[in-house]
Write a protein that binds this DNA or RNA. Structure first.
Length: 259
DNA sequence: ATGACATATGAGATATGA
């Protein structure tokens, strides 16, 4: 099963790049983030033509997540459990049925958290706490689980071209990285890092500003975290860097994992 | 630090992103 995650930075604004990439890479399942539209405006018909069904948890203007799949999606969960007052659409989960096999897949858009001296940062940390509580529940099933998305976390200095540029940033603060490690310590495997243990210069985000793409100034913040049962199935993981060079791209590129 | 780009909203300027 080929599973991908991609922060598309508006599914409508970047629909051409999204469909182009789906046709080229032919993933079975794609977790999308920052779709930036409400459910009724999600371009489902365009994806159906490419043989993808969609589970959508949208929101106007900001956030919004979805799962596209060529395989049947069941048991759809919209919203991260643990805080009914949270109005931001940042989590959707579904069971992907592949014949006799199945996997639980979640599309995650973890809060950015900047600036760190505002309520946005504690919201980010609390959101990770909620994700951990939910993950503990999911791990009890002892089945294949894929938590894929834009984590807005640079796990290590290796994951940034210029680490010094991110000191003090919510994506790289020690408290952020510590919480991400706590999440991993629940028993999750960072699929990309597991297969490329010392590889630097492998980034999923290049800012639109300051010629970041042209300079290769990127960060690795989109991740696929696997339960032990999913990690056992891990075959390959790679970043679709070339997509960033297309016309009118998202500032993130897809991450693809073969299970 | 700010906000050089980019997006959505809505019709100019502002909020947000990372």
């Amino acid at each position: 099963m080929r599973v991908a995650t991609w922060n598309v930075n508006s599914v409508k604004a970047h629909l051409e790049a999204v469909t182009r990439w789906l046709s080229e890479a032919k993933p079975d399942v794609v977790c999308l983030q920052e779709i930036k539209c409400e459910d009724q405006n999600f371009p489902s018909a365009v994806f159906e033509e490419l043989h993808y069904s969609a589970a959508v948890f949208g929101q106007k203007t900001y956030n919004g997540v979805a799962i596209l799949s060529k395989l049947p999606l069941e048991n759809i969960v919209r919203g991260l459990p643990g805080d009914t007052s949270d109005e931001q659409s940042r989590y959707i989960q579904a069971t992907v049925v592949d014949g006799s096999r199945s996997a639980t897949v979640a599309s995650i858009y973890l809060p950015n958290g900047n600036p760190p001296d505002t309520p946005k940062y504690p919201y980010k940390l609390a959101w990770i706490d909620r994700l951990m509580a939910h993950t503990k529940d999911l791990l009890k099933q002892e089945e294949a689980l894929v938590l894929a998305g834009d984590y807005n976390v640079i796990p290590k200095a290796l994951d940034a071209k210029i680490p010094s540029q991110w000191m003090g940033d919510a994506l790289f603060l020690p408290a952020t990285r510590a919480k991400f490690q706590e999440l991993e310590a629940l028993g999750l495997t960072d699929a990309f890092r597991a297969l490329h243990s010392t590889a630097g210069d492998q980034y999923t985000f290049f800012d639109y500003q300051a010629g970041a793409w042209q300079k290769g100034n990127g960060i690795r913040i989109d991740h696929m975290m696997l339960s032990p049962q999913a990690a056992d199935l891990l075959v390959s993981a790679h970043i679709e860097k070339h997509v960033r060079g297309w016309e009118k791209p998202s500032d993130h590129v897809p991450l693809v994992v073969e299970l």
